[in-house]
Nucleic acid binder design. Structure first.
Length: 110
DNA sequence: GACATGACGATTT
DNA sequence: GAAATCGCCATGT
């Protein structure tokens, strides 16, 4: 598997562009990358991204703002505490004010 | 190559 | 409005 040849690479590029204190979703990233990817594949790519120190995978949640991937980090508390350290409020595994914090690459990265 | 699975999402019941 | 269903497509068995 070559990272520069599969779509994982493109997912990483977009995730790295998510501004500090903002969050994005699997579906938004998939839509930005194109029809070739689906929200599921973005999640799969982010799974590998957890091992990448330069990839803020904790800023990617599902469309409801739920921390669906917290259980995939080194520790279950890593994702939530990391978000909180950026000023993002999390309650019951859900990001508060998600609509305001949501960063859509198809719009803001235009 | 068929079958099952998954950090999702939209639609239908 | 909650639950079930379908579409999505890469990965593993």
């Amino acid at each position: 598997m070559h990272q520069t040849d599969n779509f994982f690479y493109h997912v990483y590029e977009v995730v790295k562009l998510i501004p500090y204190g903002r969050v994005s979703t699997y579906g938004a990233i998939a839509a930005y990358l194109g029809a070739k990817s689906s929200a599921r594949m973005v999640g799969w790519a982010l799974n590998a991204a957890t091992a990448m120190p330069d990839i803020p995978a904790h800023r990617v949640v599902n469309r409801k703002g739920l921390l669906s991937g917290k259980g995939h980090f080194p520790t279950p508390d890593y994702m939530e505490s990391k978000l909180k350290s950026e000023g993002i409020e999390v309650e019951n595994n859900q990001i508060k004010y998600f609509a305001e914090l949501f960063w859509n690459p198809s719009v803001e990265l235009l």
